[in-house]
Write a protein that binds this DNA or RNA. Structure first.
Lengths: 150, 150
DNA sequence: CAAATCCCGAGTGTTTTGATAAGATTTGTG
DNA sequence: CACAAATCTTATCAAAACACTCGGGATTTG
């Protein structure tokens, strides 16, 4: 029941972009340095986020990435789903095309996994990048520098 | 965010034991057949459950396993924790000895993972084996046979 | 004693994870 | 126009986790 680094790093990067919103394109290099992530690895992760429309890229010198839409309209769940796949503790209750076994209709454990899935989704979909930025500002206004390092 | 087969198979086995409660020791072989799990693999899983006191073993011919205490006092969360480790989407919010980074106090993502962890725990700890057996009986009293095959 | 059963440790093939490397393409700036 | 700063693409790879598999030993019943 662990998240991989894909989801963790990806959310870090998205938070970083939200924090630096309005300052023009942010380079992967700067994100990788601030968040202490391998730049090349982050490249792979952000490729998925770009295809999903969560970020837009600006190529060439002084290029980088910007959020695909307002932070208030990007939920943590959106980011996690792109990087980790559909939320589901087991495949047979996957949010999209669940691979059910023949006994699914009479399966007691399945109902448990559905509840787990729903409770995770509810948490992740109730938090937006805007919420995260506001929380960070609230947490410690004097130590803003540190907050960028999730 | 997937459960491994350890948690799934283990819960199946525990449910099976709860269903056959009061019928004397249940052999691993019969559980493995009913639940369609490799017997040797199940052996490894149940070893952990035994060490945790969730099941008791009866050695020798006609031996097997029985639940360590009443089904009403065994929560799904107890089983999952034994087989999958402490519930935590990331290590830094582990239920026991979390390995925090230096920035934990000012970490915005951390609070998200805490919420996810708590919501998972709440679901898993709110369901007991007794609940599962009752649910199974309710689901389809005419097809009791199938229900044993989670 | 033999069969049934639990117990234990080691080995194995596959998949996932978390990178790393090399090079191609795009574009602002001197 | 040349160059440097970026993104983009593809390939490769080592380590760890996963899901078994196997072999043999210990214990109890009939």
């Amino acid at each position: 029941m662990k998240l991989s680094t894909r989801g963790r790093y990806g959310l870090k990067a998205m938070f970083d972009l939200a924090v630096h919103m309005g300052e023009g394109p942010v380079s992967l290099k700067s994100i990788a340095e601030r968040q202490d992530i391998s730049e090349h690895y982050l490249e792979q992760l952000i490729a998925g986020l770009r295809k999903a429309g969560l970020v837009k890229s600006v190529r060439g010198a002084q290029g980088g990435y910007v959020l695909g839409r307002e932070p208030a309209k990007i939920r943590v769940g959106d980011v996690i789903r792109v990087l980790e796949g559909p939320i589901a503790p087991v495949d047979c209750v996957s949010e999209e095309d669940p691979e059910c076994c023949a006994k699914a209709e009479h399966c007691v454990t399945r109902t448990i996994w559905e509840k787990v899935r729903d409770s995770i989704s509810e948490v992740l979909d109730s938090i937006t990048l805007e919420d995260m930025v506001k929380d960070a500002e609230k947490m410690d206004t004097e130590r803003k520098y540190y907050m960028y390092y999730i």
